[in-house]
Write a protein that binds this DNA or RNA. Structure first.
Lengths: 302, 302
DNA sequence: TGTGGTAATACGCCCTAGGTATTAAAGTTC
DNA sequence: GAACTTTAATACCTAGGGCGTATTACCACA
């Protein structure tokens, strides 16, 4: 039925329906008149209905022709749209971007990033997955995530690329009636003797080790290290006056009541944030992300 | 850009996208595998993007391929729809039917006719044009109307076909305090001496002559014939007790207050209703109308 | 009646879609 | 790890059909 029809015939038909003149339409199509005649005849034969009324000197659309013209325009538009969308999808400008986001960053750095992506690629739908930094690499490797916004350091993976983005300050948090709560900034050493509250090593080993290293270098000997499982637990412990905790400054955006934040004065008392993605970069969408991520200004997290 | 693309390629692509196997897809399409490979390659080249990821033993859609598949399905559906609609239009089952309707019939016979058409051809839009019977033939001849529902007799036109449909009763109307207003039925002769009110000959000569003929044969000698221009004027005259009028029974559906209707007992005191259309019947829609008009039951107009 | 214009037809050429045969590469089996 | 199987890509050939040129048929208009 429709099997014998090709787009050529529809394109020819549309041109003729607009010109209503075989010679002009053929010229517009860049062919000579006889082939046009034949293609139209074939189309009419396949359709089982005449599309034009030809009296030697006047070519007119039949009723069926008018209907078919309307539908043919839709068909040709649909073909263009198909191309357009497929190409956009190929360039990564269409579809989903599954992005891992390290905890706390979802409220600080991430919103700016998402806004930036949305502005540059309005057809890309960003899907956010809040996951600890060290849990993201395996998911990126097996393509469950396109890329991840993570805290460094991270164990190196030869199949992944790790790109530095910006530095985030570290802060010490304590209850607002703590003896240091009148200070805007402290040196790590001043914390000596305090209990140090920290999320268990197993939940994010790299971060855990990094903080411990900082404390050692800053000569902060904790009375005791109190391990907790989750962030709410950590906050609870701080609010119970069990001790202090060193956390990324992003936290300030989410919790403030009855808490005091103090900057750390030590050099290098900060943490890097980077982007991880597959080295072989199979999806174009990551190329776009890469291109765009260096043009943006990161909000000042402090 | 899209100019080099043909539907063949889209059909092949859709098949392959469903089978995800060149051999099977080719078999389904009734071709051998190499041509399929080549058409897909051409499509990808035109698109500037790969649609499939081929590892020797696994064929998978790319992101662009998934998007393009969705759009291609729409395209192919649109092509079928184009065919479907054009064919319907050709068979007359789609589009407008411009139908002339003689006055008064629009409230009696016409509603049933329209309902019947709507039921049989839901995609046909009937456009009603209320026009005196003798004004319809020229409009039908120049294709302003497809057909007309008219009262007979009508001057014969060799280019038109006139088809009898049903007989409609004639009635005499008078004011409800008229001396004959207690009668359900009268003979024409009993009206003798009354003024006869009639719409001017020039507005519908055939009808005018027909009524006069009836009166002559029925031995109704009117005291005076009172000519009026319009139907409302005629009713006015009747209500002013100027006389009586002989009209089609359809009128009863529209005006009753302070009027009395009496059947005419004379044989042949009725009038025929018919359908007029071009003998060369250029539009398929009239064929449908013709086919359907004899299957229907006309409402009893009395 | 002839002249100009236009769509349809005739016919030849060539492009390209499709077929067969083969190759290359990846997976499977022993 | 060698032989076998499977499957997509490539090479090459054939033929059908799309396009061009030339011509015809038909209508309008002078």
């Amino acid at each position: 039925m429709t099997e014998s029809i090709e787009l050529r015939q529809l394109r020819y038909f549309a041109a003729l329906a607009e010109e209503l003149h075989f010679g002009r339409a053929a010229r517009r199509l860049g062919i000579s008149q006889p082939p046009l005649t034949r293609q139209i005849q074939q189309l009419e034969r396949a359709l089982g209905a005449p599309l034009f009324e030809r009296t030697k000197h006047v070519v007119q659309l039949t009723v069926a022709g008018r209907v078919f013209l309307e539908e043919t325009r839709k068909t040709l538009e649909q073909v263009s749209r198909s191309f357009e969308l497929a190409q956009r999808a190929h360039r990564g400008e269409l579809g989903q971007l599954a992005l891992g986001v390290a905890p706390l960053l979802e409220a600080s750095a991430y919103p700016a990033l998402e806004a930036h992506i949305r502005k540059n690629f309005p057809h890309v739908q960003v899907k956010r997955h809040v996951l600890p930094s060290d849990q993201q690499p395996p998911l990126i490797r097996n393509a469950s995530l396109h890329a991840g916004l993570v805290r460094l350091p991270l164990e190196e993976h030869d199949s992944l690329t790790l790109e530095f983005l910006f530095r985030e300050a570290l802060v010490v948090i304590m209850r607002d009636d703590h003896r240091l709560a009148n200070r805007r900034a402290v040196r790590i050493a001043e914390l000596s003797g305090q209990n140090r509250i920290a999320i268990r090593k197993k939940f994010n080993p790299a971060f855990y080790r990094y903080i411990r290293l900082l404390c050692d270098r800053g000569e902060y000997r904790a009375a005791r290290v109190i391990p907790v499982n989750t962030l709410p637990e950590l906050l609870n412990s701080v609010l119970s006056a069990d001790g202090v905790a060193i956390v990324p400054a992003s936290l300030k955006r989410q919790f403030t009541s009855r808490l005091h934040y103090a900057r750390l004065l030590d050099t290098n008392a900060d943490i890097q944030v980077g982007l991880v993605y597959r080295r072989d970069n199979p999806s174009q969408i990551v190329h776009l992300l890469q291109r765009v991520i260096h043009q943006m200004e990161w909000p000042n997290i402090a």
